[in-house]
Design a binder for these strands. Structure first.
Lengths: 349, 349
DNA sequence: CCAATATACTGAAACGTTACAGATTGCCAA
DNA sequence: TTGGCAATCTGTAACGTTTCAGTATATTGG
């Protein structure tokens, strides 16, 4: 018969997860000492510290997240807030990988907090803050005057935005220089002799809408080209809509001879629309498009592309949030990614 | 001068998050009673129950996750385990949305647990189980003999796999019927008069590799068509490789007049390869491809597609895991999604 | 040699929750 | 009246962690 155990931790063969108590029993120390030894507190003797850390490593001790979280309030969680309908597809995938890349060797977990088109974008953020579910938050689809950023700033929770705001408030962000993108695109098209340019914009209301439109407008006047208004669509519209309206546009007398597109998926529809109208890409019209993965050149060789790296964005955003959590100044955690230029197909045909 | 507060919860105006203690103070009951009233325990009077729940709703009480987790071990977390390099892009995005859709009105959070090509796929799963970080796990890239499934079955942690296993063990899964996909694709091509078919397979080693290859082979002999071996690539290869090797294949004397592709991205490369070889899609060769978002027909009208719905997969997987957690029999939580048939372009030109 | 102080360690309390083992009340059968 | 019992409610302990307020021992200065 087994002798009844009085203390569960006396049974070293117990297959249960080790806790500080286990370590304390094994080393003959108190739990307080063990706790401090593990985090290199100064008032612990050097040898004791080493001994504790050795044993901890040996038996694979890992702090219980719930314990830590309950006691300290620290969740070790970063939350990525995503719109479940309107995000660019590769954005979701790449930004997640970018984030996980950075937090891989930290104790942080990534949770994805979704919200739908019909919800107030502030809802998920409010939930996270009110329930204290995360130490840091990453949001996308940033607006010039973004209530979410303002809210989190008020509540003092670290966050980073994908895209800049324009509220006179300082916070970490990562952004792609869409002003430069649009301007370079215009210059490139102008350099090819294109004179009447149309722009398929980002969603109206988001910060990078303005940046893109401004870059487009400034470069346009500088290059002496003119705009063919095409405000009827943005990249948030369905492929169907973009396609039909592009076809309509291209059938008009004064049609653009150059189009700039802010997203790859929209570009597929734009090209379809161009061809629906019986025109030829690269001949009647040239298209410069942003893309985040290298697909467009397989689609049509004639396309001109500018690459935006969402994985990089994810990494930068994660770094920013972690930095803020770690006490860095929010103003020092901002980054802007410059387009690498318009690239034409340099392929095997 | 403010009277010093002896109990923090006596100060009803405190802006702090309400706990059971707060509710207990407000209702004049004990915390135990409040706790039970909130979860509809039978030994609580009907009026008390209503009263407690009313107050709880009024002040916006939400259980502290760390408290629950520490006490009960329940994490209220579902973990989605993803390979950071080899997943299909739209898969990541769609499956996440599918999962979040289902867990939206549950207390569950979704955490994404990544692993890289160089890691043992068992690593992240082992981590999750050892640290008790999730109540349920979803894995993809399932293998016929999958160590992860075996491991989780041994440890008794609820999970669901995207793709079936073949170990004689029963567990929840969701799968797309890739046997049917390949067979239908073959039949469709044969019906068009195509006789020499090549298959671009899923990654060798994954469960759906076998299903796809079997469906291909069976339908092939049934239709009296022949296979042009093309084992040199799978959809896990780079676009470059697929493209080059397709071009090589298509330049040979005995080249396929029909190709079946298991993923949209690969299809882009395949088509590029076909055109590199100077052949015309829809004329010299037809291609049937799986896709998960409606892009391929914009790419080339001549493509034949079969749709796979990853968002549905995400929902089904989440439902399965929640079901298992909720006590349902694992064997009753399996689903297979049938292809809706090969669809040709029915577009506007 | 004593007091002061530095060094190394420790127990108890608390975070918010649930489970266990009562406690109190009212009602009914005997 | 009393014992039994159902119906409600309650205090305490525990989950694993960190922090507070110590304690014990060795070391130093005078």
């Amino acid at each position: 018969m087994d002798r009844q155990r009085t203390e569960k931790n006396e049974d070293a063969s117990a297959r249960e997860r080790p806790t500080l108590k286990t370590l304390a029993f094994m080393t003959g120390l108190g739990v307080t000492t063990v706790s401090r030894a593990l985090k290199d507190a100064p008032e612990i003797g050097a040898e004791t510290r080493r001994r504790v850390q050795l044993v901890a490593k040996q038996i694979g001790y890992r702090p219980n997240r719930a314990g830590v979280r309950l006691r300290t309030g620290k969740t070790n969680v970063i939350s990525l807030v995503l719109n479940t309908e309107q995000e660019i597809m590769s954005f979701v995938s790449d930004i997640i990988y970018g984030v996980t890349e950075v937090i891989a060797d930290t104790p942080y977990h990534l949770i994805v907090t979704p919200y739908s088109r019909s919800q107030d974008p502030l809802d998920p953020v409010r939930y996270l803050v009110e329930t204290g579910s995360a130490d840091g938050v990453i949001i996308s689809r940033t607006q010039p005057n973004d209530p979410r950023a303002r809210y989190m700033l008020e509540r003092g929770i670290p966050f980073a935005t994908h895209g800049r705001t324009d509220m006179g408030l300082v916070h970490p962000y990562h952004d792609f220089d869409n002003y430069a993108f649009a301007a370079e695109a215009v210059r490139h098209l102008a350099g090819m002799g294109r004179r009447r340019l149309a722009l398929v914009t980002p969603p109206v209301g988001l910060s990078y809408y303005r940046h893109t439109v401004d870059g487009f407008a400034d470069a346009l006047s500088e290059a002496g080209a003119s705009e063919v208004p095409f405000n009827i669509v943005s990249i948030d519209h369905s492929m169907e809509q973009i396609r039909t309206r592009t076809a309509q546009l291209m059938r008009r007398d004064i049609r653009p001879d150059g189009i700039i597109s802010s997203a790859a998926a929209a570009t597929l529809a734009i090209v379809a629309g161009i061809e629906d109208a019986g025109l030829k890409l690269g001949h009647d019209v040239d298209v410069v498009s942003k893309q985040s993965s290298d697909l467009l050149h397989l689609f049509r060789h004639e396309l001109l592309v500018v690459n935006e790296d969402f994985r990089l964005a994810g990494s930068e955003l994660a770094r920013s949030v972690l930095g803020w959590i770690g006490g860095a100044a929010p103003g020092s955690l901002q980054s802007l990614s410059e387009p690498k230029g318009v690239v034409a197909y340099r392929g095997s045909d």
